[in-house]
Design a binder for these strands. Structure first.
Lengths: 174, 174
DNA sequence: TATATTTGTCTTCCATGGAAGCTAATGCGC
DNA sequence: GCGCATTAGCTTCCATGGAAGACAAATATA
């Protein structure tokens, strides 16, 4: 135990629970609580970069999904919804905003008259190319708070946990 | 490189970017992308438990903040807002819902007529005690997807990154 | 003490997203 | 080819939270 380190927020919460509910083991919060806290803080930092381009997180995600599919930077709304993990209703609204901003266009699909095709415009392409470059530079700075070894270890652990969480056949321990 | 492992979502996104933007190093996404994905998946799992008690995440957080302060389980709305990291406006609405559900009461403070005091009711206390026990059991199961050593290493890395992120004097590398 | 500033909570308005249902187009089974 | 289930996108309604301002009470200042 490091006595010179002030307790962080999560450690203080754990201390409260130890006093109030000594019957409950709150040690998992040490990992899960900090993971959420860290995710939240990182999101804040990332959103600052999106804001420089007048984008919010959702809009940035949609533009990325269109850009990384490659020429001619087109995708159906349903695909975009799946890639960015929102409902199609939410996607309709995001596309509305991006269309209004002139960053994407929306047209009917030729082979399926129900379907639409969302495409990056020239300005949309330019904007996301610049924003993405900036975004990755930002992520790099944030990640550089860890040593290369720390970062590598962390990535491996996150990948492991994630894969076990998705994996149907469950736990390894206890 | 593990060739038998199918690429996960983040790895596929990185592969797309390598093709489309070979000029940009997207390796930070390996950590940051997976961290966010994992946080999202864990939140889903946690919310399932909250749902069993007819609570959403915000309400659960407020009840926890009241419970872990100890007897008589009272706190000012502003304090609750600070602890749960939302604005006081959002807190007003959360308290409205919890009050309507009979889980908390709201009264005027004696020494400061502007202030209110939110207190757990008996049923609120019972509910959160049970929900929290269940919640920690759930977190334990999720964490048991990692070995004890993995969990310990992960906690240390998250704590390190978080503290460096909050720390005013910045980076260690590059 | 009278006035100004600050503080704590609440209110209003807006942004965003989910759930569920609507509409039109597709395509399957007969 | 005709009906019926399915599909894609959109619309409507609702839940939640932030931003900013209103309001009343407390505190500081003259």
């Amino acid at each position: 135990m490091e006595h010179r380190q002030p307790l962080d927020r999560v450690a203080r919460i754990q201390a409260d629970w130890r006093r109030e509910r000594p019957d409950v083991d709150t040690s998992p919060q040490g990992v899960i609580g900090r993971l959420h806290r860290l995710a939240g803080r990182l999101t804040e930092e990332l959103c600052r970069v999106y804001g420089r381009y007048d984008l919010n997180e959702g809009e940035f995600d949609v533009l990325c999904a269109l850009r990384r599919v490659g020429e001619p930077y087109e995708r159906a709304p349903g695909e975009l919804a799946a890639h960015t993990m929102v409902t199609t209703g939410a996607m309709t609204k995001r596309i509305d905003r991006l269309e209004r901003a002139g960053l994407v266009t929306r047209r009917r699909s030729d082979d399926d008259q129900r379907g639409r095709i969302v495409a990056l415009t020239g300005p949309g392409r330019e904007l996301i190319d610049q924003a993405f470059t900036d975004h990755m530079r930002n992520e790099r700075h944030l990640l550089n708070l860890l040593t290369p070894v720390e970062a590598e270890t962390l990535e491996a652990l996150l990948t492991t946990w994630l894969s076990r969480l998705e994996d149907p056949r469950p736990p390894r321990h206890e």
